[in-house]
Design a protein around this nucleic acid. Structure first.
Lengths: 164, 164
DNA sequence: TAGACGTAGA
DNA sequence: TCTACGTCTA
């Protein structure tokens, strides 16, 4: 890839407002909201080597859920998603999962993007900054998975949709 | 997919000029230049059922070549590309290949997009309208493939690049 | 439901 | 080189 002036960063992205909508994952990459093309968890490595999550995309392929407007339970990666056919395997605390866990320790904000069906069709909506407040290990059908409870940081605009 | 006001069409796209550059295939889809996300040949079905090519993308995965600024030899699809590992198989005159062949019969214009490495990095460049002037069947390593010779329609802007 | 000249990062 | 919550059309 060829990128100019693009250091991954934690926190708000200049020029992107809460509620902004995007048609394709490629656009999230272009504006710097989420620098992974298909992976749901993006992260960077700090100078001391510790990895921290920068953003997550909830596109409904895993068993996430939004309990309220402020709480999001996000599934870790690995061990096959809902629609995969391969044998499920246990998730491990590495890559994006480790990054999210580290982010809880550090209390660093995470950009959250969710795929929604609005009246105009599917799109990715920037929900704003969240903080990981709990890391859980749960038993699913035939595997252990990580779940991350994120809470939306206060002081951000309310989100309302013409969802269909 | 959710598309509004988007009928596939043959010929120039309003708002897109020869030489326009795009970072991702997704952008080609958004502006209507090429409505396939990964496939190299896009086509539509005419009212009488005949399929005609609308656009092609040359991203270097097949053995295409640009003999001069006006002539492009484009490989048909199927039978595995250069980088695939599976067994090669013969290409057949269906789908995109059939569409390109039909376009030769009808003399309809085809939008050509090429992936280039410029000084700013890789991008897709709109080369303008071409017409298929010859359909060939050739022997490659262990398979038969189709090759389409396209000639750039006259009267279009010259293209110059700061390629690297 | 599967195939197709996808992409970035580990 | 491979994985990853891709995405369109047939």
């Amino acid at each position: 890839g060829e990128w100019i002036n693009t250091t991954k960063k934690i926190g708000a992205i200049r020029g992107v407002k809460v509620g902004d909508r995007f048609r394709h994952r490629a656009q999230l990459t272009l504006v710097g909201l989420h620098r992974q093309f298909t992976c749901g968890i993006d992260y960077l490595k700090r100078k001391d080597g510790k990895i921290l999550a920068t953003s997550i995309v909830d596109s409904g392929r895993y068993t996430n859920n939004m309990q309220s407007s402020d709480i999001l339970i996000y599934s870790g990666q690995g061990g096959k998603s809902l629609f995969e056919k391969a044998e499920p395997t246990n998730q491990t605390l590495k890559g994006g999962n480790l990054a999210l866990s580290n982010s809880k320790e550090e209390g660093t904000p995470i950009r959250v993007i969710r795929k929604l069906k609005l009246s105009t069709g599917w799109c990715y909506v920037y929900y704003g900054l969240y903080t990981v407040e709990k890391v859980m290990k749960e038993r699913e059908i035939r595997k252990w998975v990580y779940k991350f409870r994120l809470r939306r940081n206060s002081g951000q605009p309310k989100l309302t949709f013409d969802s269909s």
